[in-house]
Write a protein that binds this DNA or RNA. Structure first.
Lengths: 338, 338
DNA sequence: CTGTTAGCGCTTTCAG
DNA sequence: CTGAAAGCGCTAACAG
């Protein structure tokens, strides 16, 4: 039933107004949730809009509102399946709440400032950072522009930004306690040479727990990168060292899979018989038949909920003090532990 | 050196103009690539802008330009690492070209129309679809609104939209020829019960090539889903069938990994000795030590380049006939073939 | 090269 | 509840 006007191009609220025989304001109100329009008027407008194929121009709307429904997501390390799960869940929640996520993949090393600047030009109403912790300066700038920043699994910072973390400390603790409970006598920690904040916390908690509950301190082996290859590399160091070891905590599943494969390839230390291994994150690959990795799960859905909740709360109350949400983790036992 | 005015809020071009002692137009021109401004003026403007912390409001700019730099990416199946690589590369290219990608994860099954509608409200200047082929109606609508659509690895459609495909036909052919060349006598095809367009083409080409070059036709086994579990499921069917078979083509690496693990778990058909297997896509996991999957590679960087090129070309020439870009593929031999 | 003027499409007071 | 009018921040035509 589309009635092409003479002039092509997108249909505006004025077109709809004319056809419905009302004013632009009436049209606007019809499409503004919670505005007062007579049911009669509303009906006429809706009908005209449908006939014409009208769509609100959100850009124009944002211009007056001073706030768009655009939200930036700054993400690095998309090769790690865990990161992907995070951003997928976050995007979905955002869209459910009628936001539109702008995805900004960032180099792992690169300073997120630049990318955040790019977002600011688009009047995003919020920025979610899952890459490196952005410098304080840019956070301050966002805040002073009224753009909330939510940091996911990032270090604390001296700026009023909200954070969502999973309970990294507990990850390390649970890993250590589980391995010891399963009878391991000499533990090892596998991590990356330049650990991010989360990894650092996991490491420290693990090492501390081992120190507290076991006579032998855990040994530490590292790979250059926080990925599959890094895990394999660390295992090579471990095997070369010829030191006794019967239980490993890998700070991420992504590294753990590399470690596990390297261990199996080598063959001297069958898992879990002579070597037990626990990862962290519960990426889908951990559950694959070929791996069956025991790990510590964090629920990316809950994480996404928390992130979006943080954002919404902040919109409602821009001047509230910065908050930190810590999400619980749980052990998932599969076949790499006894 | 930020000079807070009395009135807070974002700095506008007028603020900069005043401070630099010029008109708003001069400011606008300074920030418009390829506009003519006297170097002197430009300098003054830039300085004032920096002092004030000015940022162009792209939303306002888009409103006059009638075209934003927003580009929608509609993606499903983000659990498949290959999809993730695609969208990561595409996002990066887009950002390099100063676009901003809006990520719309879609349910695999769901009709992309709705999601595209959400994008249209934001005056996106293009839509890239890697999920299911959207219905013709919505494509028509995009086109008539001047919003180019680029389909990635999707079926052709009766609407003027550009497509980027990899050479799926060659994938199937190469797989068949390679397996036969390596001495396989009885081939099998593993695919999903409801194959997407790409998979269908790969299947058909594989089956056809086998029919042409081998006396025994290939057998087909399917899993319910196009994923790891689906691959494993198909292998179970294959093993249960008790039919002879010494070479498998899996239509995606993602399925192939599940197939490989199931085969190893079972143990009766060691790979590659008694069973050779070839996947397709070359996801990173295929190269993992634990898998070493022989596969057919498509270069996601080239794909991203082609997608963005299609978009740019279309901007330059909106009325050109629809194009299809087909990207070459190549065999990567690892350890699941002899 | 520069400033003035007139909108882009929408929302939002403010009277009626 | 409704319409008229003003303006969000920017750019594009046009004279100068």
């Amino acid at each position: 039933m589309k009635n092409d006007d003479d002039k092509a191009g997108p249909v505006t609220s004025l077109d709809v107004a004319k056809r419905a025989g009302v004013s632009r304001s009436a049209v606007s109100r019809t499409f503004t949730p919670g505005a007062s329009v007579a049911p009669e008027t509303r009906k006429k407008v809706l009908e005209a809009a449908k006939d014409l194929g009208y769509r609100v121009n959100q850009l124009a709307r944002s211009l007056t509102n001073k706030r768009s429904a655009l939200v930036g997501i700054v993400a690095a390390n998309l090769d790690n399946p865990f990161r992907v799960e995070q951003i997928e869940q976050i995007s979905r929640r955002l869209i459910e709440q009628n936001f539109r996520p702008i995805l900004m993949p960032a180099e792992a090393s690169e300073d997120p400032s630049h990318v955040i600047g790019l977002l600011l030009e688009y009047s995003v109403s919020g920025v979610i950072v899952t890459s490196d912790t952005p410098p304080q300066a840019i956070c301050q700038e966002c805040v002073s522009l009224g753009v909330p920043v939510v940091l996911v699994n990032k270090r604390d910072i001296d700026a009023p930004v909200d954070r969502v973390l999973m309970d990294n400390e507990n990850c390390g603790r649970i890993a250590a306690e589980t391995l010891l409970r399963q009878g391991c006598r000499q533990l090892a920690l596998i991590t990356s040479q330049s650990p991010s904040f989360s990894l650092e916390v996991r490491q420290t908690a693990f090492l501390q727990t081992v120190a507290d509950q076991c006579e032998r301190p855990a040994r530490v082996f590292t790979g250059r990168f926080q990925n599959y290859e890094g895990g394999a590399e660390a295992v090579h160091h471990l095997l070369q060292s010829d030191q006794v070891c019967d239980g490993i905590f890998c700070v991420t599943d992504y590294m753990a899979l590399g470690a596990l494969d390297a261990l199996r390839m080598d063959g001297r230390k069958p898992v879990p018989k002579l070597m037990q291994i626990i990862g962290c994150d519960d990426i889908r690959q951990a559950a694959w038949q070929g791996y069956g990795l025991t790990t510590i799960r964090q629920d990316t859905q809950k994480l996404a909920d928390a992130v979006v909740a943080a954002l919404l709360t902040r919109f409602a109350n821009p001047d509230a003090p910065a908050t930190t949400r810590i999400l619980p983790v749980s052990l998932i036992e599969r076949s790499t532990t006894l």
